[in-house]
Design a protein around this nucleic acid. Structure first.
Ligand code: FES
Ligand code: FES
Lengths: 131, 131
DNA sequence: ATTGAATGATACTTTTTAGGTATCATTCAA
DNA sequence: TTGAATGATACCTAAAAAGTATCATTCAAT
């Protein structure tokens, strides 16, 4: 029902802010107002993105976060997988209860194709597109 | 994160069951076991589909539900809109906080296209495909 | 008419997930 | 040594999804 949650939304804004900032690192305190998220929450998001390799982090005074690669190489799908985990269009595909003939099921095949195309489209959107 | 919720999942199974049953009407009591949902919950789902015009309903002894049109004319998108309401891929599109230049925003345009194509694909899947 | 099998409507509860806070540890430049 | 920054993690709250319960209404069969 909602493909992009608020964490991804905040992340997108923060990354755009960082891309525009043109500084080696940006501390969370400097972006939270523009992004519109509370500091600790935004920090948690940034930490997830750091762990996922999307961001670099510098601790200590004068530190902050920085994009780990160029904006055109950070895809919306990267954010989604770091912050929401994999998409599952249909529960039934995942935990196949009541689902005989899993391989032969036309719905499943159909949904798989739809899911793959959706992911491919989402992977074409990059942070650069949002600047 | 999850595009199809459990109500839609149950509904799909129930409609397939009804399509196969080849009877004028099918009461909920006869499908609940195959569908795997508790009676009252499934009834609520069927009632929503009735209100949405997807099903016919016959009250009283010997009654039950029936498909309102042929299986190939009942689309997955019909079930989703009846049971989940409209899809919104991105919150920000809906309640545009912090979003200056709404019209000019590249992400929004990109997401709109993606959303439209996804919906179009979902509209190509019918109950007939699931039988 | 009465009964019982069915849906109609709606209020309520429980479970799960999303969203958010709080706290303390660690690092590092000044 | 201090204070500005992230790292890790536990905790809490709010919202949504999932499920239950109840009573009203309809209708065929008797
Ligand atoms: S209904 Fe589950 S794979 Fe088809
Ligand atoms: S960020 Fe909301 S429309 Fe672009």
């Amino acid at each position: 029902m909602k493909l992009i949650n608020r964490e991804v939304d905040y992340a997108a804004r923060a990354l755009v802010f960082m891309a525009r900032a043109n500084k080696p690192t940006v501390p969370v305190a400097q972006m939270q107002e523009t992004v519109g998220a509370a500091g600790p929450f935004l920090r948690k998001i940034m930490q997830k993105l750091h762990r996922a390799g999307v961001l670099q982090a510098v601790k200590g005074k004068g530190g902050g976060f920085a994009l780990a690669r160029a904006p055109e190489n950070i895809r919306l799908s990267d954010l989604i997988s770091a912050l929401q985990g994999p998409l599952r269009l249909n529960d039934c595909v995942v935990r196949r209860k009541l689902c005989r003939d899993h391989e032969a099921c036309a719905l499943r095949r159909r949904m798989e194709g739809i899911e793959a195309r959706l992911l491919a489209e989402i992977a074409t959107v990059t942070v650069k597109d949002l600047i």
